[in-house]
Amino acid sequence: MARADGDDRRFDTPKGLGRSGSPLRLSGDRDRFGRFTEVVARGMGTPWFLLGLTVFVAAWMLWNTLAPANLQFDRADYGFIALTLMLSLQASYAAPLILLAQNRQDDRDRVQIEQDRQRAERNLADTEYLAREVVALRIAVRDLASKDFIRQELRQVLDELDRRDDEDTANGS
């Protein structure tokens, strides 16, 4: 999203960090790796991932425990060494990917908080302006003549005219 002043930073990029300063240069979209980490972190945080991993580990252990010895590839006698290595490798990649995704979310949260703060300041300024306008209108309305006042004045004028007509009729007749 480009701005009018030529600054092409996005709102999901932390303030002070340019997108061009990234050590990872992927062809096309420079933010692809960051989105990949978020997809992985979201996937690992689901019940389906845990269920799938549990089924995979259970199947692995069952196969290597109950299958004929010549078909077993990771024997239980040795403590499922290959399974342990695979799970350790998965964990060693999962932790940094989750931290990267969390850092990106923190950056987005910081931007959102700043936008909320600015919006709150604008709302406060608008509210103060409207309050001043309401006070000015109250003062202006207080100086205006009410309907009752105008009716009373008109009645007095009509009474005065009626009185003059009565006097003119009494004097002229």
Rank of each mutant, 00 (worst) to 15 (best):
D159V: 02
D162W: 15
V157R: 15
L144G: 01
R163H: 15
E167F: 05
D148I: 04
D162P: 01
L158M: 11
D162V: 02
A170M: 04
D166C: 03
E160Q: 12
R151D: 06
D148R: 07
L154G: 03
D168G: 08
F149H: 15
V157P: 00
L161D: 04
R142A: 07
R164H: 04
A145K: 14
E153S: 09
I139Q: 02
E167K: 10
D162E: 15
R155T: 13
K147N: 15
S146L: 08
R155F: 13
S146Y: 03
D166P: 00
T169Y: 07
R163G: 01
D159F: 15
F149N: 10
D168H: 13
R164S: 03
R151L: 11
A145C: 07
A140E: 12
D168N: 13
I139N: 02
I150C: 09
D143P: 00
E167Q: 14
Q156E: 12
E160S: 12
L161K: 15
D166Y: 02
K147L: 11
R155E: 12
S146K: 15
A170H: 04
V157N: 09
R138H: 00
I139F: 01
I150D: 10
R155I: 04
R151Q: 10
E160V: 01
F149Y: 15
D143W: 00
L144N: 05
L154K: 14
R155H: 13
D162K: 13
Q152S: 10
R163C: 05
D162M: 04
V157G: 01
D165F: 13
V157E: 14
E153D: 11
S146H: 06
L158T: 04
R151G: 00
A140L: 05
A170E: 04
Q156F: 12
Q156K: 13
L154F: 08
I139P: 00
A170N: 04
D162T: 05
D162C: 02
